[in-house]
Design a protein around this nucleic acid. Structure first.
Lengths: 125, 125
DNA sequence: ATAAACCTTGGAGTCGACTCAAAGGCAAGT
DNA sequence: ACTTGCCTTTGAGTCGACTCCAAGGTTTAT
């Protein structure tokens, strides 16, 4: 699968796919004879993983760290597990924050809905 | 309340508080005789609002837009309501994405937990 | 066989959101 | 009065994550 197809499949710019690879957030992609990237199943799995993580706000640096461990093989299983749990905790916290903001805005929007005026002050606390 | 106290209360750098104000993401803060910022209740409400929104990933530009409408008074009630609903939709989507990633990482972490080896490939799809 | 549409790399540019530094004013303690 | 610490503004610097460009190689369609 060439980069453009992957780009369309995942809705990620080709430049970004190259950038992730260059930075080491995903492993080097398989190449064809001409030196073109030819993504196989495993490459796509990594893209999928990276996309998910990025959408959840996980940094590139974090992905690099994970991949670095991954490349070192089974000896880093525990370290990778720890890294994932750490990330889980961060994401759970982010979820809470966003949920909280959602509720707040929902309430505020409902005030507007009810067409009551001057309701800014009520939002914050 | 002076800027340092507010900074500590909300755990937001003073520089960031000034930045938000400079950009128009929050209204101009009340000043004392010496020209020092002296945050009152309403100022704090706006900080609280901005902090929430930023944590949920809402851009500064969006806050500026909202405040701009707010300053124009009741004639913009409908527009503000629309803006909030738009933002609600975005945040709801973000919540879903993050929830999805959370589940995925949880699953992956559980694989590690079970100490099964070589489980990267299973994650993505 | 030639143009259009891909692909490659390296490196520079952009953008949002801070973050810091410099130069100076004010305030509280000794 | 002096030091320490907080405050002000303006303007520049940083950082993460892209995003774009140039120069050139490849593939596909006509």
């Amino acid at each position: 699968m060439k980069i453009k197809e992957v780009s369309e499949k995942f809705d990620i710019p080709a430049d970004t796919l190259r950038y992730w690879e260059r930075e080491g957030a995903i492993p080097p992609v398989t190449r064809n004879a001409a030196g073109y990237r030819d993504y196989d199943e495993e490459d796509l799995d990594w893209i999928s993983f990276a996309k998910c993580m990025r959408e959840a706000g996980v940094s590139i640096e974090y992905l690099i760290e994970y991949l670095t461990l991954f490349k070192q093989g089974d000896v880093t299983l525990q370290a990778r597990k720890d890294l994932l749990h750490e990330q889980l905790a961060t994401i759970a916290q982010r979820l809470d924050e966003i949920q909280h903001t959602y509720d707040l805005i929902k309430e505020k929007a409902d005030h507007y809905e009810a067409y009551v005026e001057g309701y800014h002050g009520k939002l914050a606390n």
